[in-house]
């Protein structure tokens, strides 16, 4: 009846996931991004529940593969990645640590909390991640990945990515 002594605790697994990078923004871990919703043992099977950021984010399937491979390297043979749509992911779930990492990486983190139905960041003051100025403007509502918009700083004149509030 006794469980194998090697079976790691859920807390250990959460700590390991904190080192599992997002494939498109590698400074962020999947935990920083808020896409790991649950970690649990079902018998001898480890279930990791993830939620997609955008419906079509190409990173989602890579993330599932990476997480599974990492846990296998840690010696967990029986891993299952489950996907859950509800409640839908929002940038509000990006951790404070994650926001700081984004800024240091050169991506302006999402500004303000997401209100239901208000996709427009009307009047939002987005700070340039390079010089900190809020004298910035939107170039395009879309960017190099589904989660980003293209902005420009009018003081240091650098273009930058904004992780859009969503």
């Amino acid at each position: 009846m006794a469980e194998a002594p090697t079976k790691p605790s859920v807390g250990d697994i959460w700590r390991w996931l904190e080192d599992a990078p997002d494939p498109e923004i590698p400074v962020l871990s999947v935990v920083d991004l808020g896409i790991v919703r649950a970690v649990e043992w079902r018998g001898e099977t480890l279930i990791v529940t993830v939620t997609p950021t955008y419906s079509a984010c190409p990173a989602t399937s890579v993330i599932a593969l990476d997480v599974e491979a990492m846990l296998r390297r840690r010696g967990i043979a029986d891993v299952k990645i489950e996907t859950r749509l509800v409640p839908p992911w929002t940038t509000d779930w990006i951790s404070e640590k994650g926001r700081e990492k984004l800024r240091a990486y050169g991506i302006a983190p999402p500004e303000g909390a997401v209100c239901a139905g208000a996709a427009k960041a009307a009047g939002a003051r987005i700070a340039c991640p390079r010089c900190g100025s809020t004298n910035t403007e939107e170039i395009s509502r879309f960017g190099s990945t589904p989660c980003k918009a293209s902005w420009r700083c009018k003081d240091c004149l650098e273009p930058f990515d904004y992780f859009k509030s969503f």
Binding site: Y54, S55, A56, C57, P58, L85, I139, S140, R141, F142, G143, S144, P146, S150
Partner: peptide, 20 residues
């Protein structure tokens, strides 16, 4: 260029939604 990126992103969203 910005429109090109926007179009590709809209198309990607729609195809992801279609899959669901």
């Amino acid at each position: 260029l910005e429109e090109d990126i926007a179009m590709a992103n809209v198309a990607l969203d729609l195809i992801g939604q279609a899959k669901l």
